[in-house]
Simulated assay, not measured.
Amino acid sequence: MRADRASIVRSLTTPIIDPATTFVMLARLLSTDELIVVGDALVGWLNWCTPAELAAAVRRHRGSRGIRRARAALAEIRPGARSPGETRLRLALVRRGLPQPELNHDVIVDGRWVACVDLAYPNARVAIEYESDLHRTDPVTFRKDLSRGENLKDVDWWLVRATSEDVGLLADGFARRIRRLLATGTAGRHDTRSRDPVATFS
């Protein structure tokens, strides 16, 4: 790495290469999707740099090894992700032809905040949560997940839970499921049963 193309910043007392330049350097080692995960983290939950700073670093290092991969990753980086799992889930969906979801979307109905969800398609009222092992093993997180699902159901939103398998071996089937929900959600109400309580329970 040419010294005149890198900026030095400090972590406490340790001098290190700035995050945007580090992103370019990692392009020599990582796949495009892995680099997108890094970029999403840098401009998202880590908040160590901006998309504009990443773009400037890629321009500054033109001709460097891996720079084409860095450009390809840069085109798909999106602010808003809060975990690597969320990024991988987003990529699994868009790679299979689904539209870009909203990231960490606040569901607000009639002026009332209902929930914040990892990925969302608001027009179809479809929310997707990526469930890591923490969601299963931490009691507080588990209770919050249950409450979030019930609150979304009350306002006619679907909540779909995704695991690591849904972004790997089962990604094709998961994407087909989301596509069906989007088609149904944009066409009308999710629940097509009669709202007449007498008819419902007869």
Rank of each mutant, 00 (worst) to 15 (best):
A115K: 01
P101V: 05
C116G: 14
V94N: 02
P122G: 08
S132H: 05
D106N: 11
Y130V: 10
D138H: 03
R90A: 08
N123S: 15
L93T: 06
L103R: 01
Q100L: 14
A115C: 06
A120N: 07
S132P: 12
H105P: 09
R90C: 12
A115D: 11
A127W: 00
L103W: 10
L91W: 00
P99S: 10
A127L: 06
V126I: 11
A115S: 11
Q100F: 12
V107C: 09
L98R: 07
D106F: 00
L134F: 14
V117T: 10
T137L: 14
Y121E: 05
Y130S: 12
H105N: 07
A120T: 00
G111V: 06
A120M: 02
V109D: 01
V107N: 01
D133E: 15
R96C: 13
R90V: 06
I108T: 14
V114K: 02
D138M: 03
R95D: 15
P101W: 00
R112N: 11
Y130W: 09
A120Q: 08
D106T: 12
V126C: 07
V109T: 08
L103M: 12
R125T: 07
R96A: 13
V114C: 05
R112L: 12
D106W: 07
C116M: 15
C116H: 10
S132W: 04
L119E: 03
L103A: 05
A127E: 09
V117D: 03
H105K: 03
W113N: 02
P122D: 04
Y130D: 09
H135C: 09
E131N: 15
P101H: 00
E102K: 09
P139G: 08
N123C: 09
Q100T: 14
H135W: 10
L103T: 05
W113L: 15
L134R: 13
G97R: 01
L98D: 10
L91F: 01
V117H: 02
A120R: 04
L93Q: 02
D133P: 07
D110Q: 10
E129S: 12
C116A: 14
P139N: 08
Q100P: 11
A127D: 09
P101D: 04
N104F: 08
D133G: 11
G111L: 00
A120D: 09
E131Q: 15
R112Q: 15
R96W: 04
L93N: 06
L91R: 06
V94G: 10
Y121R: 00
A92V: 05
N123T: 13
E131W: 07
A92M: 07
D138C: 07
R90L: 09
R125Y: 06
G97E: 08
L91T: 01
G111H: 04
P99G: 11
R95P: 07
V117G: 02
N104R: 02
C116I: 13
L134K: 11
G97Y: 09
A124I: 08
D138G: 11
E129P: 04
V107K: 00
T137M: 12
Y130F: 15
N123I: 02
I108S: 05
V109C: 06
R96K: 10
P139T: 09
E129Y: 02
I108W: 00
H105F: 15
Y121T: 03
C116Q: 15
A115Q: 03
R95T: 14
L103H: 07
T137D: 13
P99E: 10
I128C: 12
V94F: 04
P101F: 04
Y130C: 11
A120H: 00
A92Y: 04
G111M: 00
P122W: 03
